[in-house]
Amino acid sequence: MIKIVRSSSTNAEVTDYYLDVIASLMEACGEKKYEDDVDLKQCKTEDIIIAPTAVDFVKLYFKGYKNIIYWMQGIDAEESYMRNGSKLRRYVLDVITKFAMKRAMAIFYVSDEMKKYEEGKFGISTDKKSFIMPCFNVSRTEGLQVDESKYKKNIFTYVGSLSKWQCFEETLDFYKQIEAIDPHAELKIFTFAEEEAKSIVKTKNVKNCIVTSVAPDKITEALANVKFGFVLREDDPVNCVATPTKLSSYLSAGVIPIFSKYLKDFYNRTADFEYVVPVSDFKPNEKLIKLMNNEINSDKLIFEYMDLFKSYYNPDYYIKMYKEKMSNLLEKKNDTK
């Protein structure tokens, strides 16, 4: 039997989607899943537990569960150090992550870059038990039947929190340069930290800007008339291994992503695309200016984005690709670790 340990994060809807895809893969291999209302205490120690963090993994392991699947959402130690600046906390999280990697029945990384980074750091090979699937919470493509009128005006968006690593202030600085190019451009900010965002917008003196919040299941609708979406990041390990969920949200609504090249997995996957805008710094580049001024070929845009939803953002694709490998691991799930 399979038991999913749900995340307690504020981004639960996104994490739940990913965890459910992992569970669906194992169901395709013949396993059955406990309902969410079944308490962990009712599970058997030989059951398969899906853990959303390394900390969860360690807690479960020392409760006696040995068949644990570890989803590495991010490189926890570096993310923690970025937030708190604590070397001790970073060290402890490194120890916990290494422990989880060595003892996990299977590991899901969100990118090849993440796998290379963590294996290199700890000197561990996880090839035999590792799976790679990017973060996404949109696999439907109905929104790609876009109204071409949305590309007539340069409307930009920022969706997300105001966490330092999301580069909100840098995004505003970037957008101010766009206003100098097109005074009629608009910016729509969707965040649950509305008041703080409004304060920063005011300080930055950003014009033609609205700040509001929107429920995750309404985001595609909110992006209906948006042309460009920001996903800007600094050049650091946390970002280089990441696959931000909002990219799938943008693409499903036909929104052209403006993203940092440091998001290596997405950058490599879309290297030949016309309707994405990779940037190397926080400045509008020639490609963006061209897309702002030229007519958008919506048919080609849809073709490119649909290519991603056929594989990169398609849960069925990963279930089919990984079924045999997971089946082999499940056969050995009761082996001594």
Rank of each mutant, 00 (worst) to 15 (best):
E324V: 05
Y262F: 13
N314S: 14
I107K: 00
K204C: 02
S9T: 11
E186W: 14
G229H: 09
H184N: 11
Y305A: 01
I155M: 09
Y262M: 03
N84H: 15
R89G: 11
V159C: 10
F168K: 00
M101H: 14
P237K: 04
K246L: 01
Y262E: 07
I210K: 05
E186I: 09
N154M: 13
I302F: 03
T243A: 00
K198R: 14
N334K: 14
A215Y: 08
Y313D: 10
P134W: 10
I210T: 12
R90H: 04
P216F: 02
Q145N: 15
K102E: 03
K153L: 01
P315L: 03
G85H: 09
L329I: 12
N154I: 09
A51H: 02
I22H: 06
V238R: 00
L187I: 03
T141Y: 12
S199F: 14
A224F: 10
S248N: 06
K3P: 04
Y61V: 08
R233G: 11
Y65K: 00
F282V: 09
M82Q: 13
E186T: 05
L263V: 06
L223N: 09
S130D: 13
T336Q: 14
A253K: 04
K41I: 15
Y175T: 08
S213P: 13
F62L: 03
D272W: 03
T45V: 12
D272M: 00
A106R: 00
D127F: 12
W165N: 06
Q177S: 08
S149F: 10
W71A: 06
D236E: 15
T336Y: 15
N294W: 12
I69A: 04
K150W: 11
K44H: 14
P216V: 01
G254W: 13
T15P: 05
T243H: 05
K44A: 15
I49R: 01
H184I: 00
P237C: 11
D235I: 09
R6C: 01
F131I: 01
F108T: 05
Y70A: 00
L25H: 06
N208F: 12
V58Q: 04
S252Y: 02
E118L: 12
A104N: 09
Y312L: 02
P216I: 00
A222W: 04
S280H: 08
I181L: 11
E46M: 11
A242W: 04
V276T: 10
K261C: 14
E118N: 10
V55S: 10
E324I: 02
G120Q: 13
D16N: 10
E195T: 14
Q177D: 10
D182I: 04
K320Q: 15
S248H: 07
D47I: 06
T212G: 12
Y312E: 03
I296S: 06
S252G: 11
Y175L: 03
Y322F: 11
